[in-house]
Simulated assay, not measured.
Amino acid sequence: MKMVALTLKRPSGNLTKITKETLQDLLWVHARAGDKLEHIYVRAGPEKIDLVFFLALTNSTTASIAANGIFRRALSSSPALCGWHADFAGL
């Protein structure tokens, strides 16, 4: 099991709010079987959202690539995430 931490930062001037439940749903919808996603932890604040992906993978690089792919797919298909960007820190 690998964990990948990610912080989403709200773009300046963007007042769009997204709930942690909606974000979790968006991420689960965009996870693929090969991503081996087991769980997503979400902590939402006014200017940022902290995520931790728990993936049933043994390689840190592969886990980071999988988490990044899940986020990028969600970002590209969800207007609620327009302009948000992510900072990754593999654990």
Score class of each variant (00 low, 15 high):
residue 64 S to V: 05
residue 56 A to H: 07
residue 71 F to Q: 01
residue 35 D to R: 08
residue 86 A to K: 14
residue 23 L to I: 11
residue 32 R to M: 10
residue 10 R to I: 06
residue 81 L to K: 05
residue 34 G to Y: 05
residue 14 N to Q: 07
residue 53 F to K: 03
residue 25 D to L: 12
residue 56 A to R: 02
residue 4 V to F: 04
residue 21 E to V: 11
residue 45 G to W: 09
residue 49 I to C: 07
residue 88 F to P: 02
residue 37 L to H: 01
residue 20 K to Y: 05
residue 82 C to T: 04
residue 72 R to K: 15
residue 50 D to L: 13
residue 70 I to V: 15
residue 63 A to N: 04
residue 57 L to E: 00
residue 58 T to N: 12
residue 30 H to C: 11
residue 8 L to P: 01
residue 40 I to A: 01
residue 15 L to Y: 12
residue 44 A to I: 00
residue 66 A to E: 03
residue 38 E to F: 02
residue 35 D to H: 13
residue 22 T to I: 11
residue 68 N to S: 14
residue 3 M to R: 15
residue 46 P to E: 14
residue 28 W to N: 12
residue 2 K to Y: 10
residue 60 S to N: 04
residue 22 T to P: 00
residue 30 H to S: 10
residue 13 G to M: 10
residue 44 A to R: 08
residue 41 Y to Q: 12
residue 50 D to Q: 14
residue 19 T to K: 06
residue 7 T to R: 15
residue 58 T to F: 06
residue 29 V to E: 12
residue 3 M to H: 11
residue 86 A to M: 09
residue 12 S to G: 07
residue 71 F to A: 02
residue 14 N to L: 15
residue 13 G to W: 11
residue 10 R to E: 08
residue 31 A to W: 02
residue 67 A to G: 05
residue 31 A to F: 00
residue 12 S to H: 11
residue 37 L to R: 03
residue 22 T to E: 15
residue 22 T to V: 09
residue 89 A to C: 08
residue 70 I to E: 01
residue 28 W to E: 15
residue 43 R to I: 12
residue 38 E to W: 08
residue 69 G to E: 03
residue 77 S to M: 03
residue 83 G to R: 07
residue 83 G to H: 02
residue 6 L to C: 15
residue 70 I to Y: 04
residue 13 G to K: 12
residue 76 S to H: 13
residue 11 P to G: 08
residue 68 N to F: 11
residue 90 G to Q: 04
residue 12 S to E: 13
residue 72 R to H: 08
residue 78 S to Q: 08
residue 58 T to I: 03
residue 40 I to T: 02
residue 57 L to M: 07
residue 31 A to S: 12
residue 66 A to R: 01
residue 56 A to L: 07
residue 6 L to R: 06
residue 65 I to L: 09
residue 36 K to D: 06
residue 59 N to Y: 01
residue 49 I to K: 04
residue 52 V to Y: 03
residue 36 K to S: 12
residue 3 M to Q: 08
residue 49 I to A: 00
residue 38 E to T: 13
residue 58 T to G: 06
residue 27 L to E: 13
residue 7 T to S: 11
residue 91 L to H: 07
residue 28 W to R: 11
residue 27 L to R: 07
residue 19 T to F: 06
residue 9 K to M: 11
residue 12 S to P: 14
residue 56 A to W: 01
residue 46 P to Q: 13
residue 75 L to G: 00
residue 71 F to W: 14
residue 18 I to T: 09
residue 85 H to V: 13
residue 63 A to H: 00
residue 47 E to S: 03
residue 50 D to S: 11
residue 10 R to Y: 03
residue 53 F to V: 05
residue 72 R to Q: 15
residue 47 E to R: 14
residue 47 E to D: 15
residue 85 H to P: 00
residue 59 N to S: 03
residue 19 T to A: 07
residue 12 S to D: 13
residue 9 K to H: 13
residue 60 S to R: 09
residue 13 G to Q: 12
residue 37 L to M: 09
residue 39 H to R: 15
residue 29 V to F: 08
residue 85 H to G: 01
residue 48 K to E: 14
residue 47 E to Y: 03
residue 63 A to P: 04
residue 28 W to T: 02
residue 55 L to D: 09
residue 40 I to P: 06
residue 52 V to M: 03
residue 56 A to D: 14
residue 77 S to C: 06
residue 44 A to D: 04
